[in-house]
């Protein structure tokens, strides 16, 4: 047995004689005695030890074979995927005027028509082939709740369809939260609404400056009121977009949520991310340039780990660090625009050259359009961070280079953050899996 290629090892100062070991392909975390680590290097493990460490992704029979298998991991994952995930841009209308809105010139009074909704339902039914058992729709906008009637119609139909097939159906919303009143949520829950991701950018003052209503009025109070009204009906996730100026105000939001009784038991997840740069060709009315161009930027590293700590130390849930292929790579994942155009990434909807089909004609080959094999090169396959990165974000590569020819390498980001994030997970998650082997 040999050490896996996809492994990070850190010193363990609070437990002398041990190493903190993280498998990037298994997302397993272990404290490994240095003696055992030496045994791996000296090929002196017992059969029991080999079995145990193999299950954690720490050792493999052959590193070359592991690398070869990794190059096909997405194919195997796609072959075993029993789900179908469709993100639906149900409209491009919005009642907010966010300072950084990346939809910029794409925004407007554009709504999915009844006819397109019918085509969407037909498309989903056709794609939900034998062997599928989970249908997940994510409604985006614009602001999706400006089309709540159409969401109900689409979901009602698909819920009946999956029920007849003995499969599961659920949908989620990515919403600004201002229209998610209790009566709206009650109605949508009946057709499968399971979760809503609501964006709040810091404390009231900061949020209202970044995400006002179109009228200019603050939206913070309305959102908090709606979360309080609906958090017993729907899994509420709180998201937020920070920049180098605003991120320090985000802990005030967490304090406020706690004070208002929106405690970790009532909020399913909290996750904050940096505002990303838009492509240069975008014309936007917003005069805003505090975006991030890469997760490798030092201020993003600092802000990201700081906010993760603030979230976790208050007991709120935030995503674990785990393998995460881009949804572009998932063959049963599509993004459908309000006009029926089909894409592979929500950030690239409406951009010339990235449409891979439409609801009437189906999906064409998109291998080259999205450069699916971007990460299948020696540098990426040899990188211990590959399972967490898979070549990074193609949207960010496109924004920086105007193409997806080069990867969006996240090595500097993980070099700077991974150890901290693993230690946060160890410290704050009350792991039920702690055991000695």
């Amino acid at each position: 047995m040999q050490l896996s290629r996809y492994l990070k090892t850190y010193p363990c100062e609070d437990k002398p004689g041990y190493l903190l070991v993280y498998s990037t392909k298994k997302a397993s975390v272990s404290l490994l005695p240095e003696r055992v680590y030496s045994s791996i290097e000296n090929h002196a493990l017992s059969p029991d030890e080999e079995a145990s460490l193999s299950g954690l992704g720490i050792v493999v029979p052959d590193r070359k074979e592991e690398r070869r298998q990794m190059s096909h991991i997405i194919d195997r994952l796609n072959a075993r995927n029993q789900g179908l995930t469709i993100s639906v841009i149900i409209n491009m209308a919005c009642n907010f005027n966010c300072v950084y809105c990346y939809e910029g010139s794409l925004k407007g009074s554009h709504y999915m028509s009844e006819r397109t909704a019918g085509l969407l339902i037909d498309f989903v039914k056709k794609r939900f082939t034998e062997g599928k058992n989970l249908l997940q729709l994510d409604f985006y906008g614009g602001e999706p709740l400006m089309s709540s009637g159409l969401i109900s119609e689409i979901s009602g139909s698909l819920r009946s369809f999956t029920s007849e097939r003995g499969a599961s159906y659920a949908f989620s919303l990515v919403t600004n939260g201002s229209l998610l009143k209790r009566n709206v949520a009650e109605k949508l829950v009946q057709t499968g609404l399971a979760s809503a991701r609501i964006t709040i950018d810091g404390d009231a003052e900061t949020h209202n400056r970044y995400r006002p209503f179109k009228t200019g009025a603050g939206s913070f109070d309305a959102i908090i009121r709606n979360i309080r009204e609906t958090c017993d009906l729907v899994r509420i996730g709180v998201g937020g977009n920070f920049d180098r100026i605003s991120y320090e105000r985000f802990p005030l939001l967490l304090d406020y949520l706690e004070k208002e009784g929106l405690t970790p038991g009532k909020i399913a997840e909290v996750r904050f991310g940096p505002v990303s740069k838009r492509p240069d060709e975008d014309r936007s009315p917003a005069d805003y340039n505090e975006w991030s161009l890469s997760v490798n930027e030092p201020w993003v590293v600092k802000a990201g780990t700081f906010l993760r700590e603030e979230i976790m130390r208050r007991g709120y849930n935030t995503p674990k660090i785990r393998p995460m292929p881009c949804q572009i790579e998932i063959s049963d994942s599509f993004v459908v625009n309000y006009d029926g155009g089909i894409y592979k990434c929500p950030a690239l909807v409406g951009r010339d050259g990235f449409e891979v089909g439409n609801l009437s004609d189906g999906v064409a080959d998109y291998q080259n359009v999205y450069n699916l094999d971007l990460w299948k090169n020696d540098e990426c396959l040899d990188c211990e961070y590959l399972p967490l990165c898979f070549g990074g974000c193609r949207y960010m590569a496109y924004v920086r280079d105007g193409s997806m020819n080069r990867s969006d390498c996240k090595r500097p980001h993980f070099d700077a953050t991974l150890e901290t994030m693993i230690r946060q997970d160890v410290k704050y998650r009350k792991s039920s899996s702690i055991r000695k082997d």
Partner: peptide
């Protein structure tokens, strides 16, 4: 052997279900 398992991890091939965008570029902008 003295290994302390803090998290058993996941099977990568089972994780294709509903996905969140890794960088949330698209997800959190609305």
């Amino acid at each position: 052997m003295g290994v302390v398992i803090l998290d058993c991890g996941i099977d990568m091939e089972e994780m294709a279900g509903p996905l969140a965008c890794c960088f949330s570029v698209a997800v959190t902008f609305r």
